[in-house]
Design a binder for these strands. Structure first.
Lengths: 223, 223
DNA sequence: TACAGTCTATTGGTCTGATGTTTGTTTCGC
DNA sequence: GCGAAACAAACATCAGACCAATAGACTGTA
């Protein structure tokens, strides 16, 4: 194995073993490179790789730290990857979303707080027939993120956020070509909010399924 | 933005824009570093970062290539990250699995082929009371991977595979402490296979839900 | 004393150039 | 035509130099 990959593995092991914990500062590059037995240049390649997947946080003039390692940080790394995997497999992404979002909504129905309900309703303000397509898409994105967040599961949030980001474009297409997108989106969202507020998990699940399937169905025809 | 991060963005953009496609070879390091306006060392850091998330494939003595970018490649990158996010949030991982695996099984029920059924049955050979815990865990892992694969969705496979890797440890614990693990696992797996064979999506969904929940329930008590 | 500004040691950021190692290709003898 | 040797191309690694940002110590002033 190349020295750089060895260094990546060693640093990873230091974290898994607990020798390094979240928030800990690594030794300076010079020192660490000597300890691991490789040059500073090669070590820097390893650090850069770990930085891009949000395992390390490098602060110039200060030092290099282990990140909080919260599942939330998975999002950025996953999004980066998913961004490169677009178009041809977008239907597969929708299929996964159709599995997760209804389940997330059902879970949220049991856990959602009154404050979160208020926040959900707030996303629907200032949305009407004059709303731009971009705004509508943004509203829809936030709406789904709020529901996911209400399910209170960091991994779920990470996975769904990263899968959703790449579908923004698809939603824009829909907005551009399908009439009454605003009306339909608002009424569907309203129904979902009411189901969540009543704690009706099964209805929330079905409504979200229908909502996602609507976009998916249109996409399937368009492609 | 640092020159290295700029280089990462530029290479990523070259892929998204289509200037570079899957399988394409990048210019030599020296040439590309001049084109992007940075030193070879810094460029190498960028390339290493993209290599670890399986976007680039560096072949010593040959050149650097864009990978196939298949969703499958997402797995390794995600697994790397999930591996570091263990223990404290393992229940959240199980919750996501409990959302996805039953849905995957229901989808598989409609798509599964006779060959895949045979493969599923084969995983149960050579498993009995004398089987080691490690073998049982391995068998269970393969069993679920086969079902996921039968759902025929690369993204689903990627996400589930990476989430499952980190739960292997939990399964081992279960095997070590819970009696009749072999019996129970075999009978549950048998039932799932029969439901899939009959194309009974709803039964498959429920059986998998029960199966996953069993482990999750035990884990919740143990923690 | 408290505060603001300055200075400095530390640490990461970048570059250059040399050398080693691997791989693919070409050449040449048989 | 085939295989081995030589060659060229490309990545792997290193050493050392200098730049730039930051945190923390220091200092002068109110």
């Amino acid at each position: 194995m190349a020295v750089t990959d060895e260094a990546i593995t060693k640093i990873k092991d230091m974290i898994i073993s607990g020798e390094l914990s979240a928030g800990d500062r690594l030794p300076p590059e010079k020192e660490l490179s000597e300890k691991l037995g490789l040059s500073r240049s090669s070590l820097r390649e390893a650090v850069k790789a770990l930085e891009i997947i949000r395992v390390l946080d490098v602060r110039r003039g200060d030092g290099t730290y282990v990140t909080s390692l919260e599942p939330k940080l998975l999002t950025e790394a996953m999004t980066f990857i998913v961004d490169l995997h677009q178009d041809e497999t977008i239907l597969e992404i929708f299929e996964v979303r159709r599995m997760l979002e209804p389940a997330a909504a059902a879970t949220a129905a049991a856990r959602i707080t009154p404050q979160e309900i208020v926040a959900l309703r707030a996303t629907m303000d200032n949305i009407d027939e004059q709303t731009s397509v971009e705004s509508l898409v943004q509203h829809d994105l936030v709406f789904h993120q709020l529901i996911t967040a209400a399910a209170n599961n960091s991994y779920l949030t990470s996975v769904l956020d990263s899968l959703s980001s790449s579908t923004v474009r698809a939603r824009i297409w829909r907005g551009l070509t399908q009439e009454k997108a605003v009306d339909r989106t608002l009424s569907e969202h309203t129904a979902i909010i009411e189901a969540l507020e009543r704690g009706d998990a099964e209805l929330a699940r079905s409504l979200v399924t229908v909502h996602i399937s609507g976009v998916e169905h249109w996409l399937r025809q368009a492609l």
